[in-house]
């Protein structure tokens, strides 16, 4: 069996549709998961009485259960409670909850570098809490927390391939679907491996550029 480029060109539109869905789901989930991360980390850092225990439990639970089982629970299990979500939104919810748990830890790691002394110093200079956050805490926390946040986002992109298990027609689903019809296995796998690699490497490259830019004031 030789490599058939003509087949790939013929299937290209279908693959691109899959890729588009992958990108949509991932982008939406990345944004939402960072939101979850910031909120959760705020709860942890501010030590809101009951909520912070809940956040700890949530993070532990997500980290110690397989993503696939979480996905099936959301897509097949939740309708049992009367909560029926479409394929797309089940995927977004699942990936957001999964990545959100990691983002909470990432953001918290960043915020913890802002020490108590720094806060006292800022307040004694007369900064308001909001200005302290904007001018002192956020710039430091972002520099420390950003690399791991971007790593989690890249993992989320890769894990969007889990959604093929519930039948969302993203990139991996399209490829497997075509393979089971046409048996052009090598071509399809080569195509999606290259696409995923390109996506991940581009994102990693952008991430390292961003880190470089952010750390510019600290380089000699």
């Amino acid at each position: 069996m030789e490599f058939d480029f003509a087949y790939l060109t013929a299937q290209w539109p279908a693959l691109m549709r899959g890729l588009w869905l992958t990108v949509q789901v991932s982008a939406l989930s990345i944004v939402l998961s960072i939101l979850v991360g910031v909120l959760g980390a705020a709860v942890r850092v501010l030590q809101v009485p009951v909520l912070d225990k809940l956040v700890v439990g949530y993070v532990e639970f997500i980290r110690n259960t397989p993503l696939l089982a979480q996905l099936f629970f959301i897509f097949y299990g939740l309708p049992g409670l009367g909560l029926r979500l479409s394929l797309f939104w089940s995927g977004v919810l699942c990936l957001t909850l999964w990545a959100g748990a990691y983002q909470i830890e990432n953001v918290r790691g960043g915020l913890e570098t802002v020490g108590k002394g720094l806060r006292e110093a800022a307040f004694s200079l007369g900064l308001s809490p909001w200005r302290f956050f904007r001018l002192v805490a956020a710039p430091m926390a972002i520099r420390v927390g950003l690399p791991s946040m971007l790593n989690t986002s890249i993992s989320l992109l890769k894990n969007s391939s889990y959604l093929q298990a519930i039948g969302l027609a993203e990139l991996t689903y399209v490829a497997i679907d075509r393979i089971s019809m046409d048996f052009r296995t090598i071509e399809m796998f080569a195509a999606i491996c290259v696409i995923y690699l390109l996506l991940v490497l581009t994102l990693s490259f952008l991430a390292s550029r961003l880190e470089y830019r952010l750390n510019a004031p600290f380089r000699l």
Binding site: R63, N64, A69, Q70, F73, Y76, P79
Partner: peptide, 23 residues
């Protein structure tokens, strides 16, 4: 009848017990 909710909840819980013990 569809036991998906209970079964998948139980599955998640089992994994959680195994993995959090390991962690």
């Amino acid at each position: 009848w569809n036991p998906a909710f209970t079964v998948y909840a139980a599955v998640l819980l089992t994994y959680f017990v195994i993995c959090s013990t390991l962690s």
